[in-house]
Structure formats: structure tokens, C-alpha cells
Design a binder for these strands. Structure first.
Lengths: 232, 232
DNA sequence: TAGATTGTTAATCGATTAACAATC
DNA sequence: TAGATTGTTAATCGATTAACAATC
């Protein structure tokens, strides 16, 4: 008697050759990529899993396991070519082939994201911005004019946009997400509290829950201080 | 022969009663908190782990395990009191007793964070803002005047500030972090690429790696599309 | 009391670490 | 060749799920 049936999950889409890479591993790739970029910039040519582990605070085993999910990038007795490994991981992450994306909501967060991020180096290319407010519509950010929210779904449909970045209040999210999905959007970078993945499991969603992250920090600090007080 | 000695980790600070709560569990608490708030607002009085599981896309077992790390908040045959559970988790997260914090760097991100977040409901209270730029110093955000970065460490020392929110470029992070730690700062909410936890393991750090998050989304979308193409 | 649901122990699953044969 | 280091298999560890006795 299973307690909750979460529907398809386990063997969905069992591919022929390469089997499913766990998200645990995928989430470490950007960090490898970042680190290898630094080594490359500093002129380091080769590195062993052991050295990399020391620098990154991981174990050499883990690094070898992670990289081997995607193929044998190393050479026995030598290690890994920094340049090649950097390029391979970049390729896996798709940084050379950016997908077009739109920002939904140009409040403080949308504006910060729009101005601050180096999107093109991350596999994403911003093509349009949308907002509800008449005051914001028409403003120019990064050379792009903010367009009325009502036109967002049509824009995505006409341009085949696959990624939407949600920087709207949580309460506005359910409606616009449905419209966007109907217009062909497949992936959401979600800054709202709305659980896109739960309500639309057919899409890809990556959440940035800043409130949750801050509360975790708050917990950890209190915990640390309590433990220190107890230890005396 | 261990491959990399990551120093203390396992049995550090073995407390008498309550044993170490895993971060996996802690990171779920804000989501429970958020969800229970919604239920409370909607007038729901009691809820079973099974109902909660269905609504949140978890298993009832997991919810009961998680909550039992902190004590028996439920009642057999009845379930959990929404109001009580919400209050208990809020208490665990320390939302009633906010810690003072400063924002280091008032660029796009610092400004967005400063304007957008409901800090006081998350256990954190912003008391000061700092920036390097002369243009930014003196600006008023949320009723607070931005102060020169050179005064940040002294401010924290004098006011006993324990939390710093890092919204500066990665390259500026190492220096200011050291200054802040020397001034008594214990916790960092880190928006930079600098690995605070690695370089200063004695502190508490919570990272928000927006670039990494975006790259993960980019990977997942490509993966999804490739799988769908292969499946045809 | 009977039904429901927790708290908790046991079983399973997945991720990390260790070990080592293959090989550069 | 000898030394180094990978790729990969086996062992361990931790987190999730299942099961069920306790109890409201």
C-alpha cells in the first residue's frame, strides 16, 4: 500500500545509450565549469581529480564519478586537460547555443535580473521584457523596450520562445504561466512562490526561492550560536 | 587511505538531547512554513500528513519524519493543528526574533534585494546599506541612506551585526569578507561566486548562485527537448 | 469501542566514498 | 619500465519510503 502516488517518475523515458543523469550531478556542473574557467584563465593546462578535489572541497572519487556520467574526459596517468574539460562541460550545459527567453515582470527583481546577469554566457538569450504596469511599459532596459504583459503569450507563440523568467508576484503566476504554456513555453526560471513544477509537471522549472534561502540562513546562524552557547 | 580530508564534519558538536538535523530537512522547513501559512489563511484548522503530502507533492512518511526531528507536533488519530504547526516551524526558523543584517553592495542586485524582500518576516532585519561608489553613497533605499563601504566593518563591529548580504562582484568578495569576519560577522547570504564557506569554514554561508541555477535550467530544457526528439 | 493517524522502527533506494585493475 | 591517475566496481553512508504498533 503506497502512501502517495506521484505518478510517472522512475523509468520514464529510458533512453537507449546514456541513462538518466541525476540532478544532483547536473547541479554540480556549473560549479566545475566556473572553476575550470578560472584555472584556464590562470594558465593551468592539466589537473588531476585529486588536485581539483582539494581546490573545490570535494572528493576525487566524486569528481571522477561525476565526469564519467558524460564520458571519459580524462587520461590515465595524466589527469584532465583543463581547456578540454571546460569546453566539454560548457557543451553539456549548452552555453554555446543559447535559447531565447523573456522576462515576465519588470519590478525590482526583473530589473535586477535583466541588468545584472550575463545571460548569453549561460545558455540563455533575453529577447523581450513584459510588465503589467503602464508606467513600466515603454521603459528601456538593456536596449529592450518593456512591452505590455497582455502581449507576452502572443510574442512567445510567434517567436517560438521556450523559456520564461518569472519575476512577478506569486499571486499573478498561475494565470500567466498557463497562458505561456499554451503559447509553447517549456521552461520557467521561477522567482515566485508558485509551484510551477507541481501544477505543470510537463514543463521544466528551476526555482529561486530567495525567501526560503534567507530563512535557512537565519536558522543556521541561530543554530550555530545556540550550539556555541551550549558548548561553554 | 582516505582521498581528501575535509577536516571536522561528522561528530562535531554532539549535543546532549537533540542530535544534528540534516540540512536536507532544514531546507524543507521554509516550504512547510509557507504552505501552512496558506492553509491557515484559508481557515483550515487541522491537516493530516497524508493530506499535506498530496498538496505538496511529498510523501506522508517524509513529512512525519521531518516534523519529528523537532518533536511530536501531531496527535494520533487527528493529525496536526495548522495554526500550531505553523507557529512551531516559525519558531524553529526564528522568524519572531529577527537578527540584524547589512547589505554589502547596492548595485542592481543589492537594490532589488533591499527593495523586494520581506526581510522582517524571514528572521532578518536590515539595518544598514553599504556601497563603494560615490554616486550610490547617500542614496536612500527603504528609508536607509547608503553608507561608504569603508565604514561597513566598523559599523558591524560597533553594532554587533552578525549577518552580511553580499551583493558585490565576486572579485571584491575575498577582501571585504575577511574584514567583516574580523569585525564579528558570522553569517553570509552570498550572491557572489566567491566560496565563503570553503575559505571561512567557521562561518555560516548560504549561497544564491543565480548563474548556476540558470545554467541548470538551460541544461534541463535541452535535455527535455533532446529526449522528446529521440522518443519520436 | 472503532477508525484514524501519528511516531518510530525497518527496508529500500540513491549518492558518496573507497578500492583497485586498467592504462597512459 | 615505473609512477601516476583514470574509469569503474564494491562498500558505506544517508535519505526516503514502507510498515506497523501505539494511542488519540
Amino acid at each position: 500500500m503506497q502512501e502517495a502516488d506521484r505518478g510517472l517518475k522512475k523509468g520514464m523515458a529510458i533512453m537507449p545509450g546514456k541513462d538518466q543523469i541525476s540532478m544532483t550531478v547536473v547541479r554540480r556542473l556549473p560549479r566545475y565549469y566556473r572553476f575550470l574557467y578560472g584555472l584556464k584563465r590562470d594558465g593551468v593546462v592539466r589537473i588531476s581529480s585529486r588536485e581539483l578535489a582539494v581546490h573545490m572541497g570535494l572528493t576525487a572519487s566524486q569528481i571522477r564519478q561525476d565526469l564519467n556520467c558524460f564520458g571519459g574526459f580524462g587520461q590515465q596517468g595524466y589527469g584532465y586537460s583543463v581547456e578540454q574539460l571546460h569546453a566539454e562541460i560548457g557543451h553539456i550545459l549548452g552555453v554555446n547555443d543559447p535559447s531565447p527567453a523573456v522576462i515576465i515582470g519588470i519590478g525590482n527583481m526583473g530589473r535586477a535580473i535583466g541588468n545584472y546577469m550575463d545571460f548569453d554566457d549561460r545558455g540563455v538569450h533575453i529577447t523581450a521584457l513584459f510588465d503589467y504596469s503602464e508606467e513600466v511599459v515603454g521603459q528601456v532596459i538593456r536596449g529592450m523596450m518593456v512591452q505590455p504583459m497582455g502581449t507576452a503569450a502572443d510574442y512567445c507563440r510567434e517567436n517560438g520562445t521556450k523559456i520564461a523568467i518569472l519575476c512577478i508576484p506569486t499571486s499573478s503566476a498561475p494565470e500567466i504561466v498557463t497562458l505561456l504554456i499554451n503559447a509553447g513555453v517549456k521552461a520557467f526560471w521561477n522567482f515566485t512562490g508558485y509551484d510551477v513544477a507541481y501544477h505543470h509537471p510537463e514543463t521544466v522549472a528551476e526555482n529561486v526561492h530567495l525567501n526560503d534561502s534567507l530563512m535557512t540562513l537565519s536558522y543556521s546562524l541561530r543554530k550555530r550560536e545556540t550550539d556555541e552557547a551550549d558548548a561553554i
